[in-house]
Design a protein around this nucleic acid. Sequence first.
DNA 1: TAGAAGGTTGGAGTGCACTCCAGGCAAGCC
DNA 2: GGCTTGCCTGGAGTGCACTCCAACCTTCTA
Lengths: 157, 157
Amino acid sequence: MSQTPQGSCCPAPESVPAGRPPAVGTGGRYTISEVAERTGLSAHTLRWYERIGLMPHIDRSHTGQRRFTDRDLTWLDLVGKLRMTGMSVADMVRYAELVRAGEHTYPERRRLLAATREDVLRRIDELRDTLAVLDFKIAHYTGYEDTPAVSEEAATP
Amino acid sequence: MSQTPQGSCCPAPESVPAGRPPAVGTGGRYTISEVAERTGLSAHTLRWYERIGLMPHIDRSHTGQRRFTDRDLTWLDLVGKLRMTGMSVADMVRYAELVRAGEHTYPERRRLLAATREDVLRRIDELRDTLAVLDFKIAHYTGYEDTPAVSEEAATP
DNA sequence: TAGAAGGTTGGAGTGCACTCCAGGCAAGCC
DNA sequence: GGCTTGCCTGGAGTGCACTCCAACCTTCTA
């Protein structure tokens, strides 16, 4: 898998000259604004994510600016997906901590993700229910010209 | 359909004696705590929903206490479903206003729900993506005993 | 008659997830 | 040298969706 912060275990494999025009190669050393653009998150949010421990340690240029790697981007991708499941930021931080803690946390990570998986399945089901209701109502509203006055009665989808 | 607030158009069809032990018949005249229990919303939230215009006019007993009808419950059911799609309370209030405004708002209601429907479809897709990622990671964590040290590399699901 | 239970109100408070601000620093350009 | 751009920091502020509070009222039960 690829969406995993490595904690402070290992420096970025490449050390591109950290000057002004930031490198945008495939190895990746992206500035905060580049990452903001790619992920749709604001720079504020990225800094905040780092501060609360939702990001692994992020490299810095010699002037102290953040340089995100492709690994960071992949992690942010996972974070985005987890976020979408309704997982709280606090729980994601917990997961990030487990990842940083090392491989002995595999069982707990598995439990955490399995629980999330159940949430996702439940959510999908609920959304499908909602879809049925929406379809029913939309159909009703679409053919409204020939419906009587007190129309929205009976027949719950 | 049945999930529709009727605004102030028509009084509840039945007027059960509004005394202390609240009627729990099929016609329904439920107290706020009964509705709280049935819907999982708190009494606070139910009052708040009414205050912000997310509920139709709610009947009162002769002592001024709320008496919810089955119609109210059905509306709350829809509200719950819409809420789950990620629709904001403000948008739901907007929809409630359209419903109160009468049948001439059918086209706009349809548009609003159709947009929501699209959101739901998109969301279901995203959740399915997430599910794939979760399955991949869970599988990895499950067979962790025989994986090498730097294991979470490559192969994004 | 007292007290408990369950309701009422307006308004204040809470928690989450950002979001912004002020003040500052480094690099590049005219 | 001065200006702009882009980033840095700690801490304060924002918006949403509740959630709670204090003071009060009715009705029922002991």
